[in-house]
Each structure stands twice: as structure tokens, then as C-alpha cells.
């Protein structure tokens, strides 16, 4: 409900506002120009660098680089990672955000900080901790070896390391948002007799859906792009435990720069596609809303 209100607001803001609630034109222009220049230098140029290298030898070589068996295996593995990791961390994120944002309890800041921790752990360390646990010399190593269970240098290890690295994304996106929204609406729903799940589906979820979507998109991007941690636990076996980022490193080290950047450009494209998808959803919802609004005013 509040989400729809927010949408209406953003929709309303498209029209020129009174000078009291928006900035003079020159300020707006200045801010737009400043942010475009900043983004051009920090985002667009690296992106262009990637694509110019990828296409340096023409489209044919570009397509060939992506159709290579090892590259395809890497793409498959990366997609598999996203399919496993993103749903798990999304579910966790929503549950954790509910517990943290909707209730007052002692030690909340501490708990949030623990959830933040994986951000600040160096990717190398993120990989290392799983090697320390499950590696041959690790605490569980001998037991795992005697039972022929492989975690490190196989897919489970890559899943674990990626789960760890992307652990906070959804939760962290939702917590500030849900805190800002408060608990009145949910409380009202509960008082009126809705069950917990009903309250969540009907009241909370519509309110947080955009935040949730951002979280999922970020989580997905990072899952696919993670390099450092995965590099420690993967074992770099060609066509088998190489994810796309590792395959890129491989190709680069083979002096196959065009192919390396071709795979990299594909990853950049994947990120852009998810975001365009998000924009489309947003646009569709606002269409729906304005249609509803028209209906209401007609009443």
C-alpha cells in the first residue's frame, strides 16, 4: 500500500513541481551533469574498455570466444551458482530483515554488524575460511576424506564461498527500508485478525518489493561476478570448476585478451539485462497504477 503511494509520488514528480519542493532548473541541470560525468569516468569508461577489447578483432572472433566449450561450461556453472545462491540468500534476507526491523530487542546493532561482516572480509579470506574448515588439512578434512565427500575444489565449496560473500545483500537492502516504514501497518493488519504470513504477503511484501528487487539484483550480480573467494576454493579445473570470472582470468593469462574480455562483456550485459528488466517492471507497475487512479477518479 505504501509502496503504491510511493509509486504515485514518483509518478507525480515527473511533472514540473512548484519551486518550493524542487530545485531551480540550473541546479537540476548541474546535478545531472555532475553525476553523468562522475558515472562516465567511473563506470562508462571501464565498460567501454571491456567492450572495445572484446570487439577488437570483430564480431566473429567475439562469437567464437563465447562458443568455446570451456567458456560454455563456465557460463553454465555461473548460472547454476546464481540459481542456488540467490534464492537461499533472498529467503534468509527477508526473514532476517523481518526479525530485525519489526521488533525492538537488545543487541540489534551488534546483530546487524555481524550480518555486515562478510562485506568487509577480504575475498581471499572468505575462501580461506572454508579451506580451513573443509580442506584436507582442515578441521573436518580427514572425516570428509574418509567418507569420500568433496567440498573444497568442487561445486559445494564454490557454493559455500559464494553464499558467504553475498550473504548480507538482501538483508542489508531491506533492513533500513523496513525500519523506515515502521510497524503500524502490520500491527493494524494483525489486530484486524490477519495471520503472520497473511500480514507479510499482503502488507509487508508490497511495501518492500522494490528494495527486495534491488537486493536480489545486487546479490545476483555479485554471485556471478565473485572472483577472489571462488578462486581460492575452485581448484581452477578447466571446463569443470571454472566459473566465468575464473575463465576470464584463464583466458587473459593465455594472452587471449579478446576472448577474456568477450566473456567479461557478457557478464556486464547480464547485469544490464537484469536492470532493464527491473526498469520494465517498475514502468509496468506505474502504468497499472495510473490506470487504477483514473478508475478511482472516474468513480
Amino acid at each position: 500500500m505504501a509502496g503504491t503511494v510511493a509509486m504515485r509520488r514518483t509518478a507525480a514528480r515527473r511533472q514540473p513541481d512548484t519551486s518550493a519542493t524542487t530545485e531551480p532548473t540550473w541546479v537540476r541541470t548541474l546535478l545531472i551533469v555532475v553525476s553523468l560525468i562522475f558515472l562516465a569516468i567511473f563506470l562508462l569508461l571501464p565498460l567501454l574498455a571491456v567492450f572495445s577489447q572484446a570487439l577488437a578483432k570483430g564480431w566473429e572472433v567475439y562469437a567464437q570466444s563465447l562458443w568455446d566449450a570451456d567458456a560454455l561450461a563456465a557460463i553454465r556453472l555461473t548460472l547454476l551458482m546464481a540459481l542456488i545462491v540467490v534464492p537461499i540468500n533472498t529467503v534468509f534476507g527477508v526473514i532476517a530483515a523481518w526479525a530485525i526491523a519489526k521488533f525492538q530487542f537488545v543487541g540489534k546493532s551488534l546483530l546487524i554488524t555481524f550480518i555486515d561482516l562478510p562485506y568487509s572480509v577480504s575475498p581471499v579470506i572468505a575462501g580461506l575460511i572454508f579451506v580451513l574448515l573443509f580442506g584436507r588439512q582442515g578441521w573436518m578434512g580427514p572425516w570428509l576424506e574418509s567418507h569420500d565427500i568433496r567440498i573444497i575444489f568442487a561445486i559445494p565449496g564454490i557454493v559455500l564461498a559464494t553464499l558467504f560473500v553475498t550473504f548480507p545483500f538482501v538483508a542489508r537492502e531491506l533492513i533500513p527500508l523496513m525500519q523506515a516504514q515502521g510497524t503500524e501497518e502490520e500491527e493494524a493488519a494483525c489486530v484486524l485478525g490477519a495471520s503472520g504470513l497473511q500480514t507479510f504477503w499482503r502488507v509487508t511484501l508490497p511495501n518492500i518489493k522494490w528494495g527486495l528487487l534491488y537486493g536480489v539484483i545486487l546479490c545476483n550480480a555479485r554471485t556471478m561476478g565473485e572472483f577472489g573467494a571462488v578462486s581460492v576454493v575452485s581448484g581452477h579445473i578447466r571446463g569443470e570448476t571454472n566459473t566465468m570470472p575464473l575463465q576470464i582470468e584463464n583466458l587473459y593469462h593465455e594472452y587471449n585478451i579478446t576472448a577474456a574480455f568477450a566473456v567479461a562483456s557478457l557478464m556486464a550485459l547480464l547485469a544490464l539485462v537484469t536492470l532493464v528488466f527491473k526498469s520494465f517492471l517498475q514502468w509496468k507497475t506505474s502504468q497499472q497504477l495510473s490506470a487504477e487512479e483514473l478508475g478511482y477518479t472516474g468513480d
Binding site: L39, L44, F227
Partner: peptide
């Protein structure tokens, strides 16, 4: 601020690009 409050041509694309640093493997960046 610019992405939320203002509208200008190509805004959606700019919005999409913000995630690039996550999506690109750090080595590529």
C-alpha cells in the same frame, strides 16, 4: 538524487549501469 528525482533521456540505462562494479569480476575491473 538525480536518478530518483529527475528525469532525463537515458536515465534507465544510467540506472542499470550502477551495478556494474558488482557484476564485473574484480579482476576484470
Amino acid at each position: 538524487w538525480v536518478l530518483v528525482r529527475y528525469s532525463f533521456p537515458g536515465k534507465n540505462l544510467v540506472d542499470a549501469m550502477v551495478d556494474l562494479p558488482f557484476a564485473m569480476p574484480t579482476a576484470v575491473s
